[in-house]
Design a protein around this nucleic acid. Sequence first.
DNA 1: TTGAATAATGTAGGAGTCCTATGTAATCTG
DNA 2: CAGATTACATAGGACTCCTACATTATTCAA
Lengths: 220, 220
Amino acid sequence: METPKNPLSIDVRIREGFSRIATAMRIEEWKKAKEVGLNPTQLAVLALLEGRKDGLNVKEIAAHLGVSQPSATDSIAALEKKEHLEKRAEQGDRRAVRVHLTSTGLAAVQRDAGGDLAEQAVGSLEEREQEHLLLSLIKMIRHLQESGAIPLQRMCVTCRYFAPFAHPDGERPHHCHFVDAAFGQRELRVDCRDHDETDPPSRAATWEAFQAGQPNLQAP
Amino acid sequence: METPKNPLSIDVRIREGFSRIATAMRIEEWKKAKEVGLNPTQLAVLALLEGRKDGLNVKEIAAHLGVSQPSATDSIAALEKKEHLEKRAEQGDRRAVRVHLTSTGLAAVQRDAGGDLAEQAVGSLEEREQEHLLLSLIKMIRHLQESGAIPLQRMCVTCRYFAPFAHPDGERPHHCHFVDAAFGQRELRVDCRDHDETDPPSRAATWEAFQAGQPNLQAP
DNA sequence: TTGAATAATGTAGGAGTCCTATGTAATCTG
DNA sequence: CAGATTACATAGGACTCCTACATTATTCAA
């Protein structure tokens, strides 16, 4: 018993919503990338590499960007020409390379950071709403990565240092064993550079505990 | 008093989350577009035009895609060559054209619909969570369009037919005067083809009423 | 009403993305 | 050790995307 026309399910409308926000983000990315003489893809590669001490393989870069390996090679070559990154030999495998930022490349990413429109739009939400949104995104990302659609992300919920709901404190229920401190749901990381992944079984267990500890959602 | 490293604010982490989901969506879009012999941009143009009886200008297409006008011309030309769309003269302005789907183009979009990974990921959320998510997206999109970052979308909250919280019924509080029926928060449209926009003042009033009627959010 | 702004597209030129298919080493496996 | 597999590069081609600029058409004002 659908009411207005377009009897679409909520999933579809949410996907539409994501797509509008993605458009806005792409526009911003062009703006920001141009400021440092790059394009969004190139800036994305640099951002991906930032804070990865061991760099990444070509294949890994392709997976994170969601493009084919030759496409990643293309972008890497373009950035190499601009001396924003360099390839180093992989220890113990002479086929492979590890891609690292150069200091020029690092400077470019860092100059880029901050103050974009998507963040402003998030800022227009209430605090509680932001927290809900972050949690929903984490759930969706987890779903996507467990189904193999995207590579494993460096999120708390897949990290060996993460202890969900380890504290009775409602404001800071989680614990990070890497920094050995309690933290709240609002602090959950999507891309933590100290992330250290666990094997799938303990990942599942962590996720169980994380889900089980969540307070029930109320009607909006 | 940040706890784990990366003292990023929640806005930034949410943006990161959006970006991961955008990656997954882009991968899916390639897959779906290839099935009909197109690429994601071309399919996006067709999808944009579907159900727009009056078509769109080149400029409008560019704005919805978030690209420059010459880029839109490129994609339109590619699709025109494939006979998926056609240009018609704009009445009363001989500079302008209106771009319309052909039947071939319509067939291509319709063949594309449904069953993508992003929707599955949304499906992994609880109902209440989906509802929250849709509301948050609508708020963000509204923010983006009011700030001029993206064009006006065909959402209920900017539609002249939309009467927010017109009914005491908690499940179906809203009313659509176009179909003259009550509907619930889960049915809020992001891209309704029956949308008819209002002037900014009444838009603001509608938004006020919509916001004011929202139940308070609880802690997640 | 004529001439300058302004507006909607199109064209040119160039960098770069993205694909598939294939080539070339190096490494693994039975 | 031969054959499979893996990591990456190359080749070729279609497009996307940009910035300038050119072409008409429309609008606005003097």
